[in-house]
Design a protein around this nucleic acid. Structure first.
Length: 818
RNA sequence: GCGAGCGUGGUGGAAUUGGCAGACACGCCAGACUUAGGAUCUGGUGUCGAAAGACGUGAGGGUUCAAGUCCCUCCGCUCGCACCA
């Protein structure tokens, strides 16, 4: 069985087929090796821009090439879109289905710290291993378009884009309290902090003031919400993004405080008559500014200090209300000129709104709890609740509110804002939970930030011709405790000249976060070898948008949000043709171990794809990944179920022996068209598990035949080929074809041919099943009624009873009510 | 606490969107066969019952000729956010 078994024309088809019927066992290894080589040699999946064909761009999240290799979770996404890509290709689309590596990141660097192996070396080895594994499962990637975010040819453009951000004022350096992971010695974006802990290592995150490059993603907050509207993203993703961005509409109001205006943000300016006190975050600037005017500075200082010592986790875990009154200065409520006390408390966050609030204890539960704890007055300004029990946070008519009395929420809001505007102490305002993106990492294995600090000219971006700014070789990858990047020790690299004035200057030593390279990689796939631009306009015009993007839910508020922002920015600059990058976004469920636990090294329950491919073959692995359960839900790995799929493929192999050059009868044709219709529809809907069961039903039908008409088997192979391309290709060749099945055309189902001319109608008596009858399709109601009543079972039970009503649902059911 | 989703045989899961619950597969039981291979083939398999039949989709109630599917109440699980003013 060496070489290409394709038909050479020297024999008749029949003789050719007979020859292959003698081999009686399914040998996946030979088959898979052979066809993977042929696809590669013939570049079966290479794709070029072809304006005569409609394009389809399928994308999966590219992996971080870890030392552990591929996990069985990765292929769930890859095989799913591979199946879709293959089907689309057979349907005549010009399909771009690329793969690459998100190669910068902490693990490679940690590995280097432990072993001294340069991250570039270990990353290269890991990429090779991943590539081997991906190729072993027969994914139809165009490997000529493979990209690596850590290669200078790639990150040249990441740096170039950073400079564009800087030039447009969207990248700025600022000293701010950031989330600092003391274990990784690195600053984290808000999105990377999970329950107050570092997303990667789990260490508790502390706050630290640092000069950081920040990207003004909040400037795009509105558009990132509003533009979700027209996109075909699963609802879960849309609502998570919307919640994360967290838009709230309200007003910003000024309260007099000392010589200043104390600004607060509120979503309910209409409840201003219920304000009985105010609260500042302990970090609020007025606390320090007025410290010597307060009567109790020691008490205040202590509280501020205690708060600063608390981690984010401690601060949010405890919802009991503590605080200290700022004695000696009161604030003035501009709505009724009442003087009210001012407190500091850690339940007011410094990062949101203005870091200060007006407290309306009657209508906000947190303020209510605080007021109870500090014995502060509670004034009801909305009707409808019982404020002796708890705060009333719903809608109600205003009372005790001067000119707002009697208004509902909507009118009250309008009137309050109008009043504030007229009297010059406030206006309408929209706030977001989304923070600007902390873009500096005090690390080595990332894109160098292409900025230079000159004492005369300040921060200057590198000139275009100086890109890429390559990472220098270092031997010491450890950041120091002050959080200086390892690059700061590479003095010959750090010391440079100012791109503007040419005098001595220093390079930025922080690098970019691992989200940088992945924010635009889908654009690079369109034109991956271009060294003049990140991608040509023609390529982008042809390929963009990504038609279908599948990836993990864990990236919804990270990568997905960042890359949408990044793309919008490039759109605003005129570099990309569309305002959103992805038309459709779906998400796959995780794969758990057999006992329902997460697979992890420490539990020792990780399934290695290599073992599955070696023991059962790539086709079995692929098909099982699709059959394991609903694509968007978690699934449990089961070796037993895997065996079932293996047997199914064996059956396909064995069926070949029963294939003959005979005509199909109407029953055969019906089964075939039913399968075509189901499989086609179910792939489109990502109902892969039921698509596979349709194929199984179809195969079971064929098994029941003594002789299988060749057209049935051919159709089966075509329908199978997106799922199990190797066996499909092999059997296609054994049928005598000298074409590749992966380049064949997808069969078209015919609804009329798929339907039987008789139907089985269920017969119910008072809603209970009593039997079924066979009738001609679309029989008249009377015929169906008569037949139903004649059923022995029905006649017996109905005996002597009066029939009140008979309901007939065409071709479905008869219900006799007696 | 808020938001989203889910709950179906021994197991993974189907169910044309209100119309025969349990497709397909795993497992199990019985039998056949053998080139003894993670074999293959045939039949059976929701529960109770000898059968007729009754019961059955987390629990309870409702709408309907008809409910896994729609409505109400409750219980349980998963995910996301979490003092966001």
């Amino acid at each position: 069985m060496n070489g290409n078994p394709r038909y050479n024309g020297k024999q008749t088809f029949e003789q050719w087929q007979e020859q292959w019927k003698t081999e009686d066992r399914y040998n996946f290894k030979t088959i898979e090796n052979k066809w993977q080589k042929i696809w590669e040699d013939e570049k079966a999946y290479k794709v070029i821009e072809d304006k005569t064909k409609e394009k389809f761009y399928a994308l999966v999240e590219f992996p971080f090439p870890s030392g552990a290799g591929l996990h069985v979770g990765h292929p769930r996404s890859y095989v799913a879109l591979d199946t879709i890509a293959r089907k689309k290709r057979m349907q005549g689309y010009n399909v771009l289905y690329p793969m690459g590596f998100d190669a910068f990141g902490l693990p490679a660097e940690n590995y280097a710290i432990k072993t001294g192996v340069h991250p570039a070396v270990s990353t290269k080895a890991n990429i090779e291993n991943f590539t081997r594994q991906l190729k072993s499962i027969g994914l139809s990637f165009d490997w000529d378009r493979c990209i690596d975010t850590s290669s200078p040819e790639y990150y040249k453009w990441t740096q170039w884009m950073f400079i564009q951000l800087y030039k447009k004022g969207l990248a700025y350096k600022d000293k701010m309290a950031i989330n600092w992971c003391p274990a990784c010695k690195v600053g984290l974006a808000n999105e990377e902090v999970v329950n107050g802990c570092c997303e990667r290592c789990g260490a508790e995150v502390v706050r630290k003031d640092k000069e950081q490059w920040i990207i003004a993603i909040t400037k795009y907050a509105d558009r990132l919400i509003d533009d979700l509207e027209g996109l075909d993203f699963i609802d879960r993703v849309k609502s998570q993004q919307t919640n994360w961005i967290g838009r709230s509409e309200g007003a910003e109001l000024d309260f007099e405080f000392g010589d200043d205006k104390l600004k607060v943000f509120t979503t309910r300016p209409d409840t201003a008559f219920g304000v009985t006190y105010m609260v500042l975050a302990p970090e609020h600037e007025f606390v320090q500014k007025y410290m010597d005017k307060f009567e109790n500075p020691e008490e205040i200082k202590k509280y501020v200090e205690d708060t600063s010592k608390k981690s984010e986790l401690q601060r949010t875990a405890d919802d009991s209300k503590t605080g200290v009154e700022l004695k000696g200065i009161k604030a003035k409520n501009p709505f009724n000129n009442k003087m009210i006390p001012v407190f500091i408390s850690d339940y007011v966050l410094t990062g949101y709104g203005t870091g200060a609030i007006m407290a309306v204890p009657a209508h906000d539960q947190r303020d209510y709890d605080f007021a109870k704890a500090f014995n502060l007055p509670i004034i009801e300004v909305l009707q409808g609740g019982d404020i002796s029990q708890k705060a009333f946070e719903e809608d109600g008519l205003h009372i005790n509110s001067g000119f707002l009395d009697g208004l509902n929420k909507e009118d009250g809001m309008k009137a309050a804002i109008e009043y504030a505007l007229k009297n010059g102490f406030g206006q309408a305002k929209i706030n977001f939970k989304l923070r600007d993106w902390v873009f500096s990492r005090q690390r080595y294995w990332g894109e160098p930030i292409p900025m230079v600090y000159c004492e005369h000219c300040g921060w200057q971006p590198l000139k275009g011709e100086d890109l890429p700014l390559t990472l220098p070789d270092v031997t010491d990858y450890l950041p120091n405790d002050e959080g200086e990047s390892p690059l700061s020790k590479a003095l010959s690299w750090v010391n440079t000249t100012c791109p503007k004035c040419g005098k001595k200057a220093k390079r930025e030593t922080d690098v970019m976060p691992n989200w940088a390279g992945s924010s635009w990689y889908f654009l690079r796939y369109c034109d991956p070898h271009n060294d003049k631009e990140f991608a040509s306009k023609e390529a982008l015009d042809y390929w963009m948008n990504v038609d279908w993007y599948n990836g993990g839910m864990e990236h919804t508020t990270l990568h997905l949000l960042y890359s949408r922002f990044w793309h919008k920015f490039l759109y605003d600059c005129g570099y990309v043709p569309t305002k959103e990058p992805y038309n459709k976004r779906t998400s796959h469920g995780m794969i758990l171990a057999e006992n329902g636990e997460k697979m992890s090294k420490s539990r020792g329950n990780v399934i290695n794809p290599d073992d599955i491919v070696n023991n059962y073959g790539a086709d079995t692995f692929r098909l099982y990944e699709m059959f394991i359960g609903p694509f968007d839900q978690v699934a449990m790995w089961s070796e037993d179920s895997l065996m079932g799929v293996y047997r199914f493929i064996g059956k396909i192999f064995n069926l070949f022996k029963k294939v003959y050059n005979i005509e199909a009868d109407t029953k055969d044709v019906r089964a075939m068209h039913k399968c075509i219709l189901e499989v086609t529809e179910r792939i489109d809907q990502m109902k892969f598990n039921t698509a596979v069961s349709s194929l199984m039903t179809y195969v079971n039908y064929m098994s029941s035949l003594d002789k299988i008409p060749v057209v049935l088997y051919k159709t089966l192979l075509k329908l199978l080929s997106p799922f199990v391309p190797h066996i499909a290709e092999e059997m296609w060749a054994r049928l005598g074809h000298n074409t590749l099945i992966v380049q064949e055309t997808w069969p078209v189902g015919d609804k009329a041919l798929a339907q039987d001319d008789t139907v089985t109608v269920a017969v119910q008596l008072c809603g209970k099943m009593r039997g079924t009858i066979e009738v001609q399709k679309d029989s008249s109601d009377d015929d169906v009624k008569a037949k139903a009543l004649a059923l022995e079972n029905v006649a017996r039970q109905i005996h002597g009873k009066e029939i009140k009503k008979i309901i007939v649902v065409k071709n479905r059911i008869v219900n006799i009510v007696a």
